[in-house]
C-alpha cells in the first residue's frame, strides 16, 4: 500500500477522527522560595489543537524542551491539562480518563532500557496491562496472549521468561511495543521510539511499526526530533517551537514546501550526504529561549532569519495562515504584502 493511497483514504474519511485536541494548555508550576509557593509557570504546551485520524501517523517534531513529550503525557493523563479539551472519538477524556481509554490509548517510551522494569520477567511486563485492563486472571491464558504478542513483534517463545537485561536495545523496544499492543489499542503514542537505537536497529523498528499500523489499523502519534524518521513513516506533521505549533501539513507539504522560517532552518540543519543542500544551509543563531520567560510576540523572532521581511514579529502573536487546505503556518504577514 503506497502512502499516497493512504493519504487519499484519510481525506475521504475525514470523520474518522480518533483523537481531537482543542486549545490544549499544559503549564507546569514552578515552586520556589522558603514556603514552596508558586513563583511562575513553564508553558510547556501553549494553546495547541490538532486531530489524529484512524490509521494515520502524525508526527510531532521539535527540539528538546519544546513540549512535544508533554502533549503525549497530557493525552494519557500522566500530566493534568491546565485548560483545553481532549476527545477520544466523541468522549471527552481530559477530565474523565477511565481504564477503558487506557486500553485504547497506549504509549511507547524513548529509552527501552528504563521503560522495562528490571526485576520483572517479560511475561509479567507484557501481561501487566492484560491483568489490569483486560481482567485476565489465569496464568496460562496470560502466557498464551503474551506469546501471541511476542510473535507479532517477531520474538520467540523462549523470551517469555527472561529478564529485560538479557536483551539488546532493539529487542527491548520490540517488547515495549508488544506491551503497547496488548489490549488492542487504537492509538499508540510513540515518544522518540528510535532515538536510543542504532541506525540499523532503528530501520527494523520503523519497518515493524509500519507493518503493525497496517495490520491493526493503528493511529500513531509519533513524537520525535529526527526529521528523516518522520519523513519516512509519517503522513502528517506538526512542527513545534516552545510549546506552540509553527507549521502543520502533510509530509509533502512540509518537506517539499517548508514555509515557516523555523521549519526551513530545521530541515536544512540536517546533516546530509548531498553536498548541494549543504551550500545553502540556514544556521540559526543563538539557542532556544527559556519557556519560563518566552520572548514577546512570536517566540521565534529573536532567532528568526526572516524577521526583517515581516510585520510585527516582536509585538503580535503569530496568526494562523493557510497555505493550502492541509498546510498551515503560524507566522506574520510579509511587509510587502507578498503571499506565502
Amino acid at each position: 500500500m503506497t502512502v499516497i493511497n493512504e493519504k487519499t483514504k484519510i481525506s475521504e474519511r475525514k470523520k474518522d477522527v480518533v483523537i481531537t485536541v482543542r486549545n490544549l494548555k499544559t503549564y507546569y508550576t514552578i515552586l520556589g522560595g522558603l514556603f514552596q509557593r508558586k513563583i511562575g509557570y513553564v508553558k510547556a504546551v501553549d494553546d495547541v489543537s490538532f486531530d489524529l485520524y484512524r490509521g494515520e501517523t502524525l508526527g510531532l517534531v521539535g527540539e528538546s524542551g519544546c513540549g512535544k513529550t508533554t502533549i503525549g503525557n497530557t493525552i494519557l493523563n500522566l500530566v493534568p491539562a491546565t485548560s483545553g479539551e481532549i476527545y477520544f472519538e466523541d468522549d471527552r477524556i481530559d477530565n474523565n480518563f477511565t481504564q477503558d481509554f487506557r486500553k485504547k490509548i497506549q504509549m511507547v517510551f524513548q529509552d527501552p532500557d528504563s521503560s522495562l522494569n528490571p526485576r520483572w520477567k517479560i511475561v509479567n511486563i507484557i501481561g501487566e496491562p492484560l491483568r489490569i485492563l483486560e481482567g485476565m486472571k489465569k496464568r496460562r491464558e496470560i502466557r498464551k496472549r503474551v506469546l501471541e504478542l511476542l510473535e507479532t513483534v517477531s520474538m520467540k517463545v523462549e523470551h517469555l521468561d527472561r529478564y529485560p537485561h538479557e536483551f539488546s536495545g532493539g529487542q527491548k523496544q520490540r517488547i515495549v511495543i508488544a506491551r503497547a499492543l496488548a489490549c488492542n489499542p487504537e492509538v499508540i503514542i510513540l515518544d522518540e521510539p528510535t532515538s536510543a537505537l542504532d541506525v540499523s536497529v532503528q530501520a527494523q523498528i520503523l519497518n515493524l511499526l509500519k507493518d503493525l499500523q497496517i495490520q491493526f489499523n493503528l493511529a500513531l502519534l509519533f513524537i520525535t526530533h529526527d526529521l528523516s524518521v518522520i519523513q519516512h513513516i509519517g503522513n502528517r506533521i506538526e512542527v513545534m517551537y516552545l510549546g506552540k505549533f509553527v507549521e502543520e501539513g502533510t509530509i509533502d507539504d512540509v518537506f517539499y514546501h517548508p514555509t515557516h522560517p523555523y521549519t526551513k532552518a530545521l530541515l536544512s540543519a540536517r546533516p546530509t550526504f548531498d553536498p548541494t543542500t549543504r551550500s545553502n544551509r540556514i544556521i540559526l543563531e543563538g539557542e532556544v529561549p527559556s519557556a519560563i520567560n518566552p520572548p514577546s510576540g512570536c517566540y521565534f523572532h529573536p532567532r528568526c532569519p526572516e524577521m526583517e521581511d515581516r510585520i510585527g514579529c516582536n509585538i503580535e502573536e503569530p496568526k494562523k495562515i493557510s497555505i493550502s487546505e492541509t498546510h498551515h503556518i503560524w507566522c506574520q504577514p510579509f511587509k510587502n504584502g507578498k503571499k506565502f
Binding site: 503506497t2 502512502v3 539488546s168 532493539g170 542504532d198 541506525v199 540499523s200 532503528q202 530501520a203 527494523q204 520503523l206 519497518n207 509500519k210 528523516s228 524518521v229 519523513q231 519516512h232 513513516i233 518537506f255 550526504f273
Partner: peptide, 23 residues
Amino acid sequence: GLIGAIPSVEKKDKKLTVIRGMV
C-alpha cells in the same frame, strides 16, 4: 546496509533495508 537503513526521501514508499541479525 548502514547507508540503506537511513530513512530518506527516496526510500519513502519502500521498506528500509535492514541488516538482519544482531551485533
